[in-house]
Write a protein that binds this DNA or RNA. Sequence first.
DNA 1: ATCATCCTATACAGATTAGTATAATCGTAG
DNA 2: CTACGATTATACTAATCTGTATAGGATGAT
Lengths: 187, 187
Amino acid sequence: MTGLREKILTTASNLFQTQGINSTGVDTIVAVAGTTKMTLYKYFGSKEVLILEVLKQGHQDFQNWLNDKLSTNTKQPTEKLQKLFDYIEEWVTSPDFHGVGFIKASAEFPKEDNPVHQLSSQQSQQFKQYIHHLATEANIKDAEGLALQLSLLFEGAVQAEQMKRGSGAIKYAKTAAKFLIDGALKH
Amino acid sequence: MTGLREKILTTASNLFQTQGINSTGVDTIVAVAGTTKMTLYKYFGSKEVLILEVLKQGHQDFQNWLNDKLSTNTKQPTEKLQKLFDYIEEWVTSPDFHGVGFIKASAEFPKEDNPVHQLSSQQSQQFKQYIHHLATEANIKDAEGLALQLSLLFEGAVQAEQMKRGSGAIKYAKTAAKFLIDGALKH
DNA sequence: ATCATCCTATACAGATTAGTATAATCGTAG
DNA sequence: CTACGATTATACTAATCTGTATAGGATGAT
């Protein structure tokens, strides 16, 4: 028993990433996961609930992984900030990287009153605040500005990497990030 | 007579931007445009053709507008590069800004063999090469690297601006871009 | 063995979608 | 006036999708 609920979650996550969310039917998910619709709707009351759960899981996985890396491998606040994009690169280029959910989700659900859009927007802001937190601890003057700039680079790079895998976008985003961070540290 | 074909094109462009491409039915488009499906299918053989045509139109409009601004208001190559994001900000914050098509399209059509994905990927690369061209004329050493970084900032900022209108993402992308450009000019 | 629980298998309802067929209507040129 | 091209109006097909209903297995505990 590997847990049917989790199996459905990871299968849906992979399919959403590779085929798109709206283009992935429930029938396809259960077929690939090796189960039936009845069990899917038992664990997740609707497709929308499943989408939200996939987003939550993916975001939590990333946040946990990143936070773990930063808290165990670095000590000083400025070092955390400087190594942030090293770990992001490690995450994005890892073979089991399955994309950043909230970027794709916000594009597929653009209406602001949509729950999926709201969650992805919230997750995007949460990640930005995480960088903001790192920047303030590193005594950056305009911490909010730097956080926004770095999150722009992050989202742009992930977008580019999704559009063409192995494009090396992350590498250049990393050098740009270091440059921006070093510049902000001097003030 | 305002031209039915154009009316359908702009209507579809707006709806795709605000509601998403896959979530916008052909019936909705013709209802808003004030025509019928028969005329739509007369001008555009299929919904996919319409999507492609909307993408082409939007990309061409942007490229023409930007190129015009740069060629009339600036003369020196380095000045063009430095004012690039000023004009991008002007474009993005203009009231009739209807998004950057290829960013949303590539998210909604992730399969690489899909014609819509291929066109949007091609347009993204075309924009990057345009910046590359500006950078080489300004005698930037690593012109390709800078072009990639600036396009990352551009796509990230547009993405953020789409996610939350008036977020000011463009403003911070602009300062980051100027910083990166100035840094690259010193070598 | 029996019973309950979890899962499967399959069929179906109801809604939505892209695309087509057909007939009616309008404006305009000759 | 007539004839023609363009557009409308409407109904339809065929496919697809979410969600449900119903019946049948499998397994494990008591």
